[in-house]
Nucleic acid binder design. Structure first.
Lengths: 253, 253
DNA sequence: TCCCGGATAAAGTCATACGATAGAAACGGG
DNA sequence: CCCGTTTCTATCGTATGACTTTATCCGGGA
């Protein structure tokens, strides 16, 4: 599974060897191909499997250990950490999930988190936004309107819209949740049939209503409308997931 | 500044050399001693400052780059990344902040985030908790009651209480915010005069009321009471911060 | 049976070398 | 004198082999 759109720099530079190794290991872990507790290929044995030096391999492991994906201990080896230890909100970890099949529970959980956070973020944005913030949000919205539905620039504008709202909250830790929101949006658009105009139009209206509330500096209204947006997006995404599951069941039957 | 309590394993093993280097660099970055865009000590020059091989140094940099603290590019050097790129919700990044002076804005921002998230988490916990979840939450509460105020076991029990609530939500991405909540608690207790019994008793009552709502499986009540708990904690912490600032101003005058 | 200590395997650290690349400086043409 | 091109060089990236440290395992002795 490959995502065609990837707005932020949440992807390791593929030119770098260590990045390729990290990506490979991470995807194996997240998809479950390497289950919890599994030993990673021994640092020496690994040279046989993929031709890469210990240096590059070790740097990749260090990178992953910082995200809680692996644990290395002398003598016992380097093992896949239990999922509870993973930093699921890390931008890289979120991005690596796109390489795996869609996990309905995970996507629901992300939407649930989003539903808790993003309306509050919209409230703060409405209250605290500067004119520059507003310009940025408006520009993103215009990008959604003026480009063809589901095209790459449109998706990027959608992501930029939500990111701009987070930026307007002036709360850096809160802003760190923007990648999680982006992930739900990308999942939603990834699952969608690219000719589904109905949802796109509805989504556009949802966005416009949020923007309007932020223009008015009406925090409560912005929060309420953002809730509506997220719920609409969740419902349509869950519908798509169900359809996908059904289609796959029919195909294998 | 040194925090005496550190419940989770959010601290790099200090026995490992690479961990010491990473810690040192991270603290320098977070305190602002190494400002944005500053070049990190050259990989070769660094050997003069602290006697460490390139290997250990590079692994430390890789570790930090995964958290957005630094950016390494061939030739141009390894530079401190802009703060917007930092993953402020990463457990390590949160922990490293304790090595710097308290940053009021940052602590306020964390509390703000907590106020958005934790009441919702409490609601879910009340709705979804298993008996085992409840046992865990109750055990943590007992740990707060039965140990002396502000002692290490008490603090750990406090952290465990909130972590258990997150665990009961059955939402792994949401659980990843537990370290951020823990950080606010640790800041609050760090700033507090260790003989302040008044706040401790009030906090205990707040916790008991939340626990009671979870026992009753009353989601709305749990959310409301958790809001109260967080707000009480925020207010007392801000008071302590103000007192601290005042004391320092008086001392320097 | 339990405890202690050595063997051992794996990660951790070091030193060195070479390759690749982007920026800087030197150079040359207009 | 200015600007584009070339060359140079500093710095990161990768590779390799040796040595150190650490934790587990296992066997011997009390």
């Amino acid at each position: 599974m490959q995502l065609h759109v990837n707005a932020r720099a949440t992807r390791l530079n593929p030119d770098r060897l260590f990045g390729q190794v990290a990506h490979r290991l991470a995807v194996a872990i997240i998809t479950g191909a390497s289950p919890t507790g599994a030993l990673l290929p021994n640092e020496d044995d690994l040279r046989d499997e993929i031709s890469v030096s210990r240096t590059a391999y070790r740097e990749a492991v260090k990178f992953l250990s910082g995200k809680g994906l692996v644990e290395a201990r002398p003598k016992s080896g380097t093992r896949v950490a239990p999922r509870e230890a993973w930093n699921l909100l890390d931008p890289y970890v979120l991005a690596w999930h796109f390489e795996a099949d869609p996990n309905e529970k995970f996507i629901r959980d992300l939407f649930e988190l989003r539903l808790f956070v993003e309306p509050s973020a919209a409230r703060l944005a409405a209250q605290r936004r500067s004119d520059a913030d507003l310009k940025r949000i408006e520009a993103a919205f215009r990008g959604m309107v003026e480009n063809p539905p589901y095209a790459a620039p449109t998706v990027n504008a959608d992501l930029a819209f939500h990111e701009a709202i987070f930026a307007a909250t002036r709360n850096p830790p809160l802003q760190c949740l923007a990648p999680a929101v982006s992930a739900t949006i990308q999942w939603s658009l990834f699952l969608k049939a690219p000719d589904d105009r109905f949802f796109f139009t509805a989504s556009l209206i949802d966005h416009e209503r949020v923007l309007d509330a932020i223009v008015q500096r009406d925090g409560d209204l912005a929060a309420a409308r953002m809730s509506g947006l997220v719920i609409d997006s969740l419902n349509s995404t869950l519908g798509l997931l169900a359809a996908r599951v059904q289609a796959e069941a029919a195909k294998s039957a």
